[in-house]
Design a protein around this nucleic acid. Structure first.
Lengths: 231, 231
DNA sequence: CGGTCCCTTGAGCCACTTCAACTCACGTGG
DNA sequence: CCACGTGAGTTGAAGTGGCTCAAGGGACCG
């Protein structure tokens, strides 16, 4: 079997696992894989930069990618931590415009690129895909608005617990994530996040080591009357 | 001319003014008007409620409508103040699912309804409309994320100025809006908003009276390095 | 003319941010 | 292999913005 075929198989396998493309027929997944290319990134590489026009749809094949915005004072707001099967940009491919988000590889990562016009052409041929995209964007809006409301009526510890809970649902109990990343997801400072993590460690809810957090008591993170975030 | 024709003309006129439908051909606007119905609401009427499935696309014909979410502790976060030509729900028509937003008439208002399947069918026939919808959703995400970042590194007075500036760009210098609405848009308490408004009044930037704010010095509201919000 | 909603202002408090200093783990280049 | 730099984690102390609670005045509506 040729290398290209191996690569094609991998792309198809990824698409069939990706929620975004789950509803597509096998033929459609093959078609999509045919126009997709894959690129490799090392840790801290920039997948795409703020202020640069969008020319491709991107989806994570392997690794972890952080999509975030930087404020005027240098604070970082992390909007999405994407693992395998998760798309990094849903709006850009349709508008072609630049947006204020930066995508950085948190770990070594492979990203699949599909030229934007080819992707949107494909999407318009598959209405269900359009609906899914709109649905995901709706969840993104809801999640951001939830974060605003949480900042109004929840303490840092509650917000941070919610972030940890959502992350453990998504990636499992072992999180290879720094406290700084957690702070950026919780909308607080690194110091405050560290203090709360320290408290949680002392009460046996988590264990921490450099760049790693292990959830020991997932049930302690659950806040009643509080659905998960979309991160 | 029959009453129905008059009503049809009005709908077409509205669609031609609405940014969402601006790019459509006159024929398409006529088609859309043919499947649209109009309903009247008095002040404080609920246009649609949280937790109820979406069965229609809605767009404001006349008046002002507030779309907001309520937090567990009863705080209200206003997500959109919609005037004539602005859609109230872009996601619901595609998914049919309920969302956590409440739409209330701030003033007497006329709202145009289009049955959701008819609307989505129409949208899929007009790809440009889909692109515009995705673009607007992207702006909504960006705006919510901007609000989060503003809460991190801006004081209430700066956030409130930005809200006033955006509102005056959208609705003109005379705002028939209460301080409470401003607070809900600024993500702060009514008291804090009132205090800031009081300061702005004393420095001659605005004039206020019950339920009304008049911008006297629009230039004083502009914060350098800060684009407008999408409200 | 009574009630409700909006506006106004004061006083106190407290969760967080900020600033600062220090330790530790890791990798890298001399 | 060691020295050094960098980035993460840790903890303390101090200051404060704006939230909360409270109390009252005035406008509009039924």
């Amino acid at each position: 079997m040729k290398a290209e075929s191996v690569s094609l198989e991998k792309k198809i396998a990824l698409f069939s696992r990706a929620p975004l493309f789950g509803g597509l027929s096998p033929e459609a997944q093959v078609e999509l894989a045919g126009i997709a290319t894959s690129r490799h990134f090392v840790k801290n590489d920039i997948v795409f930069q703020s202020q640069e026009p969008c020319d491709a749809f991107t989806i994570v094949e392997q690794g972890l990618v952080r999509v975030s915005r930087y404020s005027a004072t240098g604070k970082r707001l992390t909007y999405l931590l994407a693992g395998p099967g998760e798309p990094l940009n849903l709006v850009g491919p349709f508008t072609g415009a630049s947006r204020d988000y930066v995508a950085e590889a948190c770990t070594e990562a492979s990203i699949i690129f599909i030229e934007r016009k080819a992707f949107t052409g494909f999407a318009f041929d598959h209405p269900q895909l359009i609906i899914t995209i709109i649905d995901i964007l709706g969840q993104a809006v809801d999640s951001s608005n939830s974060r605003i409301m949480d900042m109004l009526d929840k303490k840092v510890i509650q917000r941070l617990k919610r972030v940890l809970h959502t992350l453990s649902e998504k990636f499992g109990p072992v999180l290879n994530i720094t406290a700084m990343e957690i702070a950026d997801l919780t909308s607080t400072t690194t110091e405050s996040a560290l203090r709360v993590l320290s408290d949680l460690r002392q009460s046996g809810v988590i264990e921490t080591s450099r760049g790693r957090i292990v959830i020991q008591k997932p049930e302690a993170l659950i806040d009643p009357e509080c659905e998960d975030l979309w991160i």
